[in-house]
Design a protein around this nucleic acid. Structure first.
Length: 440
RNA sequence: GUGGCUGUAGCUCAGUUGGUUAGAGCAUCGGAUUGUGAUUCCGAGGGCCGCGGGUUCGAGUCCCGUCAGCCACCCCA
């Protein structure tokens, strides 16, 4: 026995834990459907190449991958996006736009586990494909906020940090950097807070030479921007002209639309413009966002953004896309911390309290009927005194106890006890189902 | 993958400078209690002290290794 432990990073769900996960899944599904998204799923096991194609060869060290019996290099899925991109790409011409899909399933990453990070976790993915404008981003971010508030969280518990890789490109190119340099610089921006300042300056100098010093100042100023007016202002100081000026203006208009739309929907207090978010891997192409708890005690709750070029890269047609992922692990920790987790495992409607062996016959007959009528009913397998049975009824969360005592059965009745207010009434056994229905 | 800390019952923890058969509370089960959810009382089960090796007359205790967990890195799709 003692030798058969769960593998590191894999969880077992005892009923109490399962109830918590089920609660999370229920809200995820409920809100996604409220927003008109359709649920899909793909294979848990895919070819290793699929994930390498999206993220590069280096990803292999973090994949739960192996060679199968047919000699195929395969991997448990670390995320849904490549599968989604393939599925959408394969039927792109037949699918109604916009494509609004979500998926809920287990994902696997071969990493050393820590709090908030396991090797197997459930993740919700929500994506909109086929819409390039900010309406899709608005829809997705409002869905994310609505989902978190549906768990009982408020703007005092979490917020969304909004950023934009496009804006970074416009800014850094206006400062005279080419595309390759910008990509490298964004890799440093991602680590801006975590690396010591000297190390950051050194890396910048490595990319742009003597301009490293002024570039550091410029990036530091850009990261500190926390409002749209401040963003406009910083570009005023740079003489952006011609085609770049047009792209800049269009992008600023997108920002107005995004923030304006989310404010109209009542989500202003959840939003924070924060350009320090660029998100690690380089396939994000526009708005990016992450949800965090306000106190900063936990890892990111959710993260996502635009990936307008990925579907094509994965073999499909040109297809703008935006999506986010949210795992059950960090969310579950935050919900528990804020008292937003359900207290009880599944409960029953009725608990039958049985006086003895003779009474059991009548009870079993009625229990069968009640169950067929759709009520959940539980009862003790062995004869026990009433006190124990009421205790068990209470522990089972029963709303009603139906009492089968010799006195009642002689009169052809049973006693129904309302477990919450302890009131009791006698009803004829022939009318039990109706009585239960009216009391529940 | 690297480093630090921690492993005793299902849970929370005691366990003396190394010394007899490893304890408590909670939880579980049984009983007091075959007509009502509380309280109380009595009792029971439950441990290769993470695992392996070493030192010693003797190891839960000291040493080494290993595994697992936590924390910080790396990474975070």
């Amino acid at each position: 026995m003692a030798n058969f432990k769960t593998l590191p990073g894999f969880r077992e769900f005892y009923p109490e834990d399962y109830a918590k996960r089920k609660h999370i899944f229920q809200i995820w599904r409920q809100v996604a459907r409220r927003f008109g998204f359709q649920e899909f799923d793909g294979p848990v096991l895919e070819s290793l190449e699929l994930f390498k194609a999206k993220s590069g060869d280096e990803i292999e060290s973090q994949l739960f991958c192996f060679t199968d019996k047919g000699g195929r290099e395969v991997s448990l899925r670390p995320e849904m996006t490549p599968t989604l991109a393939r599925m959408v790409g394969a039927k792109a011409n037949a699918l109604k736009r916009p494509i609004k899909w979500f998926c809920l399933g287990d994902n696997f990453r071969y990493e050393k586990q820590q709090r908030g990070r396991l090797r197997c976790f459930s993740q919700l993915n929500v994506d909109i494909l086929g819409e390039a404008g900010p309406s899709a981003d608005i829809e997705l971010i409002s869905l994310l906020i609505d989902m978190l508030t549906s768990f009982g969280l408020t703007h005092e518990d979490f917020y969304i940090r909004l950023s934009d890789r496009n804006m970074w490109f416009l800014y850094l190119e206006a400062l005279g950097n080419d595309e390759a340099q910008v990509t490298q610089i964004l890799g440093i921006v991602d680590k801006w807070e975590r690396l010591p300042e000297d190390a950051v300056r050194e890396k910048l100098t490595g990319i742009v030479g003597d301009k490293g010093r002024s570039l550091w100042e410029a990036i530091d100023a850009f990261i500190k921007i926390d409002s749209l007016p401040a963003l406009r202002k910083i570009f005023d100081g740079l003489n952006v002209e011609g085609e770049s000026a047009e792209r800049l203006q269009a992008r600023l208009d997108d920002w107005s639309a995004l923030l304006g739309g989310l404010e109209l929907m009542g989500y202003k207090e959840f939003l924070q413009l924060d350009l320090s978010i660029v998100r690690g891997l380089a396939y994000y192409t526009g708005f990016v966002f992450e949800a965090f708890d306000r106190k900063g005690e936990f890892r990111a709750l959710a993260g996502g953004g635009r990936y307008d070029t990925l579907v094509k890269k994965m073999g499909g047609p040109d297809m703008p896309a935006v999506g986010f992922g949210m795992g059950d692990v960090v969310l579950g920790e935050l919900l528990a911390d804020r008292g937003c987790m359900p207290q009880f495992v599944d409960t029953v409607d009725v608990y039958a309290v049985i006086g003895g062996e003779e009474e059991r016959k009548a009870a079993l007959a009625d229990i069968g009927s009640l169950r067929q009528a759709g009520y959940s009913v539980d009862y003790a397998f062995k004869n026990q005194n009433f006190g124990k049975q009421f205790k068990a009824a209470s522990a089972a969360g029963a709303r009603l106890a139906v009492i089968y005592g010799s006195e009642e059965l002689e009169k052809g009745v049973v006693k129904i006890r309302n477990m919450s207010d302890r009131s009791e009434e006698e009803v004829p056994r022939s009318h039990l189902a109706e009585a239960v229905r009216s009391l529940l």
